[in-house]
Design a protein around this nucleic acid. Structure first.
Length: 257
DNA sequence: ATTCGTGTTTCAAA
DNA sequence: GTTTGAAACACGAA
């Protein structure tokens, strides 16, 4: 379940598994995974970077760029749904599984990387550095759209997904239906603070137990997926609504400050 | 047996 | 600009 925190966890895992393990060979089991460019010959992975939810396996001269999309994940175990295998010369293989097959791999030459990212038009990162109210106001404050939908605009703020939007707004006590341009600086300030709190929390929790749907563990979220359950803050029932076709979870009683 | 819904993101269309 | 819906794809649940 690729939320930003999961992508960051994947980044750290890949760095451990691949960097300093000699030349890495990437083998495709599903050729459709490669959306553009070429695989390139085996070579060492120098570092693993993250930009929004995009992972970059940096290699001298040519990098692998991966987007997990809905169901992509890396693991050390082979199994059903594996679409690619990364084999380090001096280490154990790493498997890329992706049941829904929406994940993407791009082979990009180093000189083309700036243009590749420029074409995505990604906005700045809201994490791990905490952004002040003025920053949020500048990025999203002009939008007429509901703030929950605004938070998903990757060209304004990059990396927040559907779950994060509900969680952050609940934490910040901002109603998801409020037009973004109506929020005052205090609300933006809380959003900035709670973005950090949400992601740091998730990172800490999921270092222990990963993924709740895929793994069948506990739902690690405060309101997401908890329609009808009591609000952790005031006890009222959490409501599920739909905004531009996507689930929103919020407390109808205590979330409009 | 179909249909629906699912965490992502972009794109076209109204 | 805004807002919605569809699309990419596979699969489990209703």
């Amino acid at each position: 379940m690729p939320e930003l925190a999961e992508v960051e966890i994947a980044r750290r895992a890949l760095a451990t598994w691949l960097v300093g393990q000699g030349a890495v060979r990437l083998t495709l089991r599903d050729p459709r995974l490669l959306k553009s460019g070429e695989l390139g010959p085996p070579s060492p992975v120098a570092s693993v970077r993250r930009r929004a939810k995009i992972l970059v396996l940096e290699r001298p001269g040519h990098s692998w760029i991966v987007h997990l999309r809905m169901t992509g994940r890396f693991s050390r175990h082979d199994g059903p749904g594996v679409r690619a295998v990364l084999s380090p010369q001096d280490g154990e293989p790493v498997y890329f599984a992706d049941t829904r097959c929406l994940g993407e791999l791009h082979g990009v030459h180093t000189r083309d990387q700036p243009a590749w990212f420029a074409a995505r038009k990604l906005g700045p990162e809201p994490w791990p550095e905490q952004r002040p109210a003025s920053w949020w106001q500048d990025q999203l404050g002009g939008l007429r759209t509901p703030v929950k939908v605004a938070l998903l605009r990757q060209d304004r703020v990059a990396g927040l997904g559907n779950i994060a939007a509900s969680e952050i707004l609940w934490r910040a006590q901002v109603s998801p239906t409020r037009p973004a341009r109506e929020l005052d600086p205090q609300a933006w300030s809380r959003i900035g603070r709670e973005t950090i709190a949400h992601l740091d929390h998730l990172l800490a929790v999921e270092d222990v137990e990963i993924a709740y749907v895929t793994q069948g563990g506990e739902n690690p979220f405060l309101v997401y997926g908890r329609a009808g359950e009591p609000c952790p803050r005031c006890g009222a029932g959490i409501a599920r609504t739909v905004q531009s076709g996507r689930s929103t979870f919020a407390c109808p009683a205590c979330q409009d400050r």
